[in-house]
Simulated assay, not measured.
Amino acid sequence: MNQTSDFLEMKVPAKPEYVGVVRLTISGIANRLGYTYDDIEDIKIAVAEACTNVVNHAYRDGDGQMTIGCGVYQDRLEIMVADRGKSFSVDEIQGSLGPVSADKPISQLKEGGLGLFLIDTLMDKVEISNAAGVIIIMTKFLHRGEVEQNVGRISATFSDRQ
C-alpha cells in the first residue's frame, strides 16, 4: 500500500537552536516505525544537514522559518525541508558540485558540496526543487527483511550527475 498513513508538518524558526528539535522529532517518528539504529542515525544526520543549510544560506537577515514535512508510508519515510529564503540556481549548484573522493581533504570540497553529498549518501532518494525557495525531499525506505537495491540517487535535478 502506497498511501500516506500520516503526514506531519512543523514550522520552526530558521535558527541553529531549532535544528536539534527537528532532528529529535524525526528521530522519534523513525524509531516508532521500526527503523534500525543505523538508519535512524543516517536520517538524523541528513535532516540536520538539510536544516543547517536553511539556517546558513536561506535567510540573510536571520529572520525566517523552515517547514519540515514528514510523510509516513508503510514502506518509507519521506522528509521535506523547505524554506522561502534565497533560492539557488540548480545549474549553478550542479556546476559547483564535484565528485567527492577520498584523496581530497574535506577543506578542498566546494562549499555546499559536502552537505548534499552526505545527504545523498545517507538517504535512499533525494529530490531538490528551487521553484519557491529551496525544497529538499529525502526518502528512506524501511527495510523489513528485504533489501532495496539502487533505489535511486539524487534524482530529477541531479540525475545526469550519477
Rank of each mutant, 00 (worst) to 15 (best):
I43Y: 11
N53G: 06
R153T: 07
I136W: 00
A48N: 07
A48Q: 09
E146M: 08
T25Y: 12
D39V: 10
N31C: 12
R84L: 03
G115N: 05
G115K: 03
G71S: 05
M10D: 08
L142Y: 06
V81T: 07
I68R: 08
T4P: 03
Q149E: 14
V54F: 03
E148N: 14
V12F: 06
I154D: 10
K15C: 02
V72Q: 11
A46F: 09
T25C: 13
L142H: 05
V55M: 00
I93F: 07
F7A: 03
G133D: 00
V100W: 05
V12H: 03
G34M: 02
D120Q: 10
Y37P: 13
P99V: 13
C51Q: 09
S107R: 15
E127M: 07
G133S: 03
Q94Y: 09
E78G: 04
L109Y: 14
L142S: 04
T157I: 04
Y18P: 00
A156L: 07
K15N: 03
E9C: 08
G34D: 02
N2A: 05
S107V: 12
V47D: 05
R76F: 02
I128W: 10
T4L: 15
A82F: 13
D39E: 13
A14D: 01
R60T: 11
L114Y: 12
Q94D: 09
S96V: 15
R144Q: 09
S5T: 10
K140W: 09
P13T: 00
S155E: 10
G95L: 08
P16T: 04
E92N: 08
E127H: 07
E9N: 12
S155F: 02
I45A: 15
A46N: 07
I137N: 08
H57C: 01
S159V: 14
D39W: 08
E49W: 08
Q149C: 07
V90H: 01
S107Q: 15
V151P: 04
G95V: 03
Q108T: 15
D160P: 04
D6Q: 12
D124Q: 10
C51E: 13
K125H: 11
K125G: 11
V72A: 04
K110S: 10
E111D: 09
V47Q: 07
H143M: 14
N56D: 12
K15I: 04
D42K: 15
G133T: 01
Q65C: 10
S159I: 14
I26H: 09
A30S: 12
N31A: 15
N2W: 00
D61P: 03
D124I: 05
V100M: 14
I106H: 10
D38R: 12
K104T: 11
L24C: 13
F117K: 01
Y18D: 01
M10I: 12
T25R: 10
I135K: 06
I29V: 15
K15F: 02
V54R: 00
I137E: 02
S96Q: 14
P16Y: 02
K104N: 14
G64A: 00
V12D: 02
D6I: 13
